[in-house]
């Protein structure tokens, strides 16, 4: 097969990979914030529910979760197409890890900030949203960047439920042609470039946010 044709097939797969990332990332963010805050501040029964979600999704692997959603849930009457199953599984999985980022970042705000907010008589809602959260947000950016890269890597799993993403096409082409070394080299480089672009993006975001919030970092 001509190399140009291989490249164009792979690039189409890369678009599918990008699409999954674009859909799963917002879901993961919502889960991370939602359950992270519930884990921190919700009353007991709801808090335990959050812990169960977090521990379950962190304790088993993304592939098992993907298979469970794709193969088992249909027996309960919840049928998903492969794409939805992939986005949901990856979003929930990465989101569970994200809750720990949210929790860690909230805990990293010095206790004195809370105390100053009490002394100035802010209400508990104001303390959370005006004082603690803006500072925690800056601390969340680097670990969220790492998780976004983990998400890109994890999207390769959807190839195992027949979604024609970058990995799926690489394997299919490798089975059909003899140019396996070139194919996998291109695929690895493409994933690497994704990760680098994300890493740079998050670094820029961190710089921007920390400038807006405190001109280059926190701490006193």
């Amino acid at each position: 097969m001509p190399f140009g044709e291989i490249i164009s097939i792979l690039l189409e797969g890369a678009l599918v990979t990008l699409k999954i990332v674009a859909l799963a990332l917002p879901l993961a963010a919502v889960m991370a914030f939602g359950f992270g805050m519930l884990r921190l501040y919700a009353p007991k029964p709801i808090k335990y529910l959050a812990i169960i979600y977090i521990e379950f999704f962190r304790g088993t692997s993304a592939l098992i979760q993907l298979y469970w959603i794709y193969f088992v849930l249909p027996f309960f009457g919840f049928s998903f197409d492969a794409m939805t199953a992939g986005v949901v599984a990856l979003g929930l999985n990465i989101g569970a890890y994200g809750t720990e980022v949210v929790r860690g970042a909230m805990a990293s705000v010095p206790k004195g900030q809370y105390e100053a907010a009490v002394a100035l008589n802010f209400s508990s809602t104001q303390r959370l949203w005006r004082i603690l959260m803006p500072q925690a947000l800056v601390n969340m950016i680097p670990p969220f960047g790492n998780l976004a890269i983990e998400l890109v890597k994890a999207t390769s799993l959807v190839s195992l439920i027949t979604i024609a993403d970058l990995t799926y096409r690489a394997k299919a082409l490798a089975d059909m042609t003899l140019q396996v070394t070139e194919i996998f080299a291109v695929v690895l480089v493409l994933y690497f470039l994704f990760a680098q672009v994300l890493a740079i993006g998050f670094r820029v975001l961190e710089k921007k946010l920390s400038r807006g919030l405190g001109r280059g970092g926190l701490g006193q």
């Binding site: 010095p110 004195g112 900030q113 105390e115 100053a116 002394a119 008589n121 803006p134 500072q135 006193q220």
Partner: peptide, 17 residues
């Protein structure tokens, strides 16, 4: 009750953002 009181802290605790 906190309206009566104001406090200055050892480590300032200014809001960095």
């Amino acid at each position: 009750m906190r309206h009566h009181l104001g406090m200055v802290f050892q480590h300032f605790n200014l809001f960095p953002h």
